[in-house]
Computed example of a mutant assay.
Amino acid sequence: MAALVADPAGLLADCEAILLGRRETLPASHAYALAELDIDAPHGDGAVLDAMLDLAHRVRVTWTSEEVALESIVSGKTGGCPEDCSFCSQSSVFATDVKPQPLLTGPEVLEAARSAQEAGASEFCIVYAVRGPDERLMENILELTATVHEHTEMHVAVSAGILTAEQAQRLSDAGVVKYNHNLEAARSHFPQVASTHTWDERWATLNLVREHGMEVCSGGIVGMGETRVQRAELALELAEFRPTETPLNFLNPRPGTPLQLREPLEPREALHAIALFRLILPWTLLRLAGGREVALKDLQGAGILGGVNGLIVGNYLTTLGRTPQEDLKMLEDLDVPVRALQDVL
């Protein structure tokens, strides 16, 4: 691998031949070498990072499409989660300013879904801050899913933690098309992220989701103290599972959490992560998610042109995002088409 890192031009040419010439996925050796490149080293008329982003864009267009898919999320249950994920202000373990809220009602969720559809989103994800759903929560999920299906054209996705096989089947039967359960971090780094559950428990839930006919949505958060190599490790673990969608979040340090003092990634480091994930996961819907405004700042357009083909629009679970109109204007300025509603599946 040292030889690959020492020859950025040769490495990128190899990756291009594999991904675009042979339409194959990268071997681990190339993935780890890409992670360790000096992104500021000269390359052609620019730097290595520029070449990586250019290749990532061409891979995205070739393997997926030029379109960007928009999704809106709503917190069906906010706060009071018993897990100790070190990045999360919804954990009851930490002294944060996020307090437990009651479950959202059907009218509240329907209003959010209709607003998201009017703003151009094609998918609506209901997110619950829980270890996993109990029966009361399952009933709420099924009721809200039916409401959104009845009154909008939106496809419903759900994120509700660790599932049993019986729960996965009920969600699938209700028409939930996609289930989100992020691995969050590479297996080697996960013990520094959470201790109340394991990486393997998350992996087991993803297997259940796939076995019961739902699409798998799984990604992670970068900027939690992991190395670049561990980012490649996470992407390779995801590649083994081959999720339909990969949300890429950037740490937005939350007051009261163990990671509150960690500085957000610098924009060029965030762009490197985007290109790295696209090159390792060429088929996936790579969706920019929480923290993108903090990490990328004014370079969000560069991320779109560097391999991204999805955005979460509007606000996130406990943090504010840009308005959907701002994102739509950015995509218009970049001349990037938005995926039409009927083309989602």
Rank of each mutant, 00 (worst) to 15 (best):
T196Y: 12
L288K: 07
V148S: 05
E67Y: 10
D173M: 13
R287Y: 02
K99F: 06
V313G: 01
L285A: 12
L259S: 08
V5F: 03
T246Y: 05
R228F: 01
G219P: 03
K178R: 12
P267Q: 14
A185I: 05
A146V: 07
D298C: 10
T96G: 14
V130C: 15
Y316I: 05
D134S: 08
A116Q: 07
D38C: 04
P258S: 15
E211Q: 15
S218C: 12
A185T: 13
Q90G: 09
L142T: 09
Q90A: 12
L142N: 13
L142F: 10
R22W: 02
T78E: 09
R242Q: 10
Y179A: 07
Q300T: 09
E123Q: 13
F94M: 11
L163N: 06
E16F: 00
P267V: 14
V156Q: 01
E153P: 00
A3C: 02
E263L: 09
D97L: 06
A302T: 08
H155R: 09
L305G: 05
A95N: 14
C217F: 04
D40A: 11
A51W: 01
L234T: 02
E71H: 10
T246E: 02
P247N: 13
L259T: 14
K99P: 00
P82W: 10
H197V: 10
L4K: 08
A3F: 03
H149I: 03
K77I: 08
P324M: 12
L70M: 03
G21V: 08
Y316C: 06
L4M: 12
S195G: 13
A186E: 03
S91C: 13
D38V: 02
A129L: 06
G290E: 10
V59D: 00
R22G: 01
E108K: 05
C81K: 13
Q260Y: 08
E266I: 06
E215I: 00
E215P: 00
L311I: 02
Y316N: 11
E123D: 04
D50T: 01
R278W: 00
S159R: 06
P243N: 04
A160L: 03
A239W: 02
G76M: 08
A113W: 09
E108Y: 03
L248W: 05
L37S: 00
G106C: 09
H189L: 03
A28N: 06
V98Q: 07
H30C: 07
D343A: 13
D97R: 14
L234G: 07
G220V: 04
G79Q: 11
A17C: 07
E143W: 08
I304G: 01
A289I: 07
N180K: 04
S195C: 09
N207G: 15
I221G: 11
T198C: 11
Y32P: 02
R268C: 05
L103D: 03
E111W: 00
E266F: 12
E166F: 06
P267G: 14
S75R: 11
G175P: 05
L261T: 15
P100W: 08
H272N: 05
G301P: 00
W199Y: 15
T244H: 11
M214H: 02
G120I: 06
S188C: 00
G219I: 03
G80F: 09
L271Q: 04
F241I: 12
D327N: 08
G307R: 01
E233L: 01
E71T: 13
A17N: 13
I126D: 05
W203L: 15
C88S: 12
G132L: 08
H272L: 01
I274Q: 03
F241Y: 11
